[in-house]
């Protein structure tokens, strides 16, 4: 055909088709999104430290393993309270002359999603130790260690943050391990990663592909009870450890703990729901229960797991008892 024998016409047509489709499927939707999008009114802009931390997050290629997107599917529920919407990413613009916009949504979830990690794991002490050596807090983690974000000093000066690293992970380091400014900024960024609640009146998008509840056949034989071990593993284990012994100088043991073994259920539930900072030798505990919206059944399952594991042998509690206390806490907090 004549048309195909003219290289200008042939290649011109191919290029035209390609560019045309590019405009339709890429450029127009992107521009459209940009124009009809704005950050949520109650979204908190990143602090100066958090911006610096985000740059460090980008430089170290953390996005290779960590996503920042809660999809609208049921399995993503563990990473946030609602699916992400376009407005959540609206505040991202070009970084500088050299570098492009970084929404950091990611395509690989080799490590946990970080959309809501600021709520899930806000502890500075935990995050610093985890950055210095992930395996010091999460035994089976395969995350790289970032010791170059820390300095070794003879003396901790005022305003500096020391990281208490357990002996086996010091690898012959003598002296005090102190977090660098970059490490603190990175943690500030991680702490800032919280899902913004939708403004009143806006409908929260649904999670799709909900699991069907197994109702048939389970005659109350505990099949529907929350799994205490799994919940402990998700919410508690990274600090208190799988063996319940905690980490010396950072996180207290639950094995043989008077709170766990004792009868003061109100104290126990309050610690889980509201956090704890009564003991200076340990790091601050965040309000794990409230932050993760744990139900009374789940809290009871965690409590019972802790009361009966690692040699602990105390009387278990019922969800009803826990619910009463949680309701009470809610009333007192609101007042």
């Amino acid at each position: 055909m004549k048309f195909f024998n003219d290289h200008f016409k042939l290649f011109g047509t191919a290029l035209g088709l390609f560019v045309g489709l590019t405009i339709v499927v890429a450029i127009t939707p992107a521009l459209n999104n940009q124009e009809n999008n704005a950050p949520l009114p109650n979204a908190i802009p990143l602090s100066k430290d958090a911006i610096a931390g985000k740059n460090s997050f980008i430089a170290n290629g953390c996005v290779a393993c960590h996503t920042q997107q809660v999809r609208n599917v049921d399995m993503d529920k563990m990473w946030g309270s609602r699916p992400n919407i376009a407005a959540d990413y609206a505040a991202n613009t070009r970084i500088d002359l050299w570098r492009n916009t970084a929404t950091l949504m990611g395509t690989e979830r080799t490590g946990p999603d970080l959309t809501n990690v600021g709520t899930r794991q806000p502890s500075v002490a935990w995050n610093l130790l985890h950055l210095y050596q992930p395996r010091a807090v999460v035994e089976k983690s395969i995350m790289p260690a970032y010791p170059w974000l820390f300095k070794v000093k003879d003396k901790v000066e005022e305003g500096e943050t020391e990281v208490i690293v357990p002996e086996p992970f010091r690898k012959g380091v003598r002296g005090k391990i102190v977090a660098s400014e970059e490490a603190l900024q990175l943690v500030a960024y991680l702490q800032s990663l919280k899902q913004t609640p939708l403004p009143d009146g806006k409908v929260t998008p649904d999670f799709l592909y909900q699991k069907e509840l197994k109702t048939a056949g389970s005659a109350g034989d505990g099949a529907n009870l929350a799994d205490g071990r799994a919940l402990y593993s998700t919410h508690c284990q990274s600090c208190h450890q799988a063996n319940g012994e905690g980490l010396k100088g950072a996180f207290p043991p639950l094995k043989g703990s008077p709170v766990v073994l004792g009868d003061d259920l109100e104290l126990f539930v309050t610690i889980i729901m509201k956090g704890y900072d009564a003991r200076p030798e340990y790091a601050v505990m965040n309000a794990v229960g409230t932050d993760n919206k744990l139900t009374p059944e789940e809290v009871a399952a965690i409590i019972n797991h802790e009361k009966t594991s690692w040699g602990n042998n105390a009387k278990t509690v019922s969800p009803e008892e826990v619910k009463k206390i949680i309701d009470f806490i809610k009333i007192t907090t609101e007042q």
Binding site: N33, Q34, A90, N92, T93, T101, T103, M105
Partner: peptide, 13 residues
Amino acid sequence: VPAWQSGLGETII
């Protein structure tokens, strides 16, 4: 080209 890459535009591109 940075023109269409703010927010989710970056992800579409």
